[in-house]
Simulated assay, not measured.
Amino acid sequence: MNDSKGMTASNKAILVAAFLLLAGAIGFAAWRDASSTPNAPAESPDAPPSDQLAALEARTRSEPGSADAWTALGAARFDLSDFTGATAAYEKAVAISPQSSGLWSALGEARVMASERDPMPAAALTAFEKAIALDAKDPRARYFLAVKKDVGGDHKGAIDDWFALLADTPQGAPWEADLRRTIEQVGKIHSIDVADRLARTQARPLAADEMPVAARAIPGPSRADMEAASQLPKGQQDAMIQGMVDGLEAKLKANPGDVDRWIMLMRSRMTLGETAKAAQALSDGMAANPGAATRLKAQAQLLGVPGA
């Protein structure tokens, strides 16, 4: 695309839809949707975002060869809508860990969001293609490659690709509802009837090792808890949520071998929009449970934890 032409109104709508779709996968989930400032960084009871960012930057200086450190910094910068900074951090991460499809797709997304005019920069496309080469099922890369088709004029092809992604999406995946909404929105924009196909589409049954099976049975904050908290005054919201997450973390300190609780902590962090903390929970959980690293990583991928 010639970026001198800028984005059309349709392309802008697609990118908005893209951002909403990836919300579940990158952390801007129900909690942020209920707020009046959806692009604001998630608050922390421990330190202001600037202090957290400084700590993450310090970690990359002390651990310049750590993909985890650069991934956490990239996720934090993305949370702060510093997409250029997120791109730079993810580029460092993929240079260290080039075999991670999740890192390549996170880099591609950051490059898309950093672009002010071109809805699919060549560098972003390259990152998504590398992600797909490593993992043909990477949902973020598949989504954005369909976006590429749509902004190129192949609206039906894009919708077909999104339906294929929907067919592979497990029941309860964070992006499922937003993917359906995206298909509806793009169909409406381009006068393509998708209602019957959506009605016939059923979510894929969960495999035995996929996240919601384990996590739903773990005591701790659920999306319903978060939504209930959103009805409280802000101070009570913060106290309620922090109490739940603190309780979960306390259990992990007492028993770091509880893999299911690490999964729940990742889900809680993603629901709160704390993607950097979710990435740290993945790293800590794998360090404490090397024998369960494959399972933790698979579940983190389902949640959309950066770098998974």
Rank of each mutant, 00 (worst) to 15 (best):
M1D: 13
N2E: 10
K5E: 08
T8K: 04
S10W: 11
S10Y: 13
S10V: 12
F19R: 14
L20K: 11
L22V: 11
G24V: 00
G24Y: 08
I26L: 06
A29W: 08
W31M: 07
D33E: 05
S36G: 04
T37N: 10
P38N: 02
P41L: 03
A42D: 00
E43I: 00
P48W: 00
L53R: 07
A54Q: 02
A58M: 01
A58H: 04
P64Q: 01
P64E: 02
G65N: 04
T71N: 08
A75D: 03
A76I: 00
D82R: 14
G85P: 15
A86S: 07
Y90L: 09
K92L: 05
V94N: 15
A95V: 01
S105I: 08
L107S: 08
G108F: 14
A110Q: 13
E116V: 14
E116S: 15
P119Q: 07
M120Y: 13
P121L: 14
T126E: 15
A127L: 08
I132P: 09
K137D: 05
D138N: 14
A141E: 10
R142G: 11
F144Q: 13
V147M: 14
D150N: 12
D150V: 12
D154G: 07
A158C: 09
F163S: 09
F163D: 04
L166G: 09
L166V: 08
T169G: 12
T169W: 10
P170A: 05
Q171S: 15
P174Q: 07
L179W: 06
L179P: 09
R181Y: 07
I183W: 06
V186N: 10
I189E: 14
H190V: 09
I192F: 14
V194T: 11
A203C: 01
A203T: 05
A207Q: 14
E210G: 12
R216D: 11
R216K: 06
G220N: 11
G220T: 07
G220I: 03
A228E: 12
D238P: 00
A239Q: 13
G243Q: 01
M244C: 02
V245A: 01
G247N: 13
G247L: 03
L248F: 06
K251H: 07
K253M: 01
N255Y: 06
N255G: 04
L265D: 07
R267A: 10
R269P: 01
M270V: 08
G273V: 00
E274Q: 11
A276Q: 02
Q280F: 03
S283L: 02
G291K: 07
R295T: 08
K297E: 04
K297M: 11
Q301T: 15
L302A: 09
P306S: 09
P306A: 10
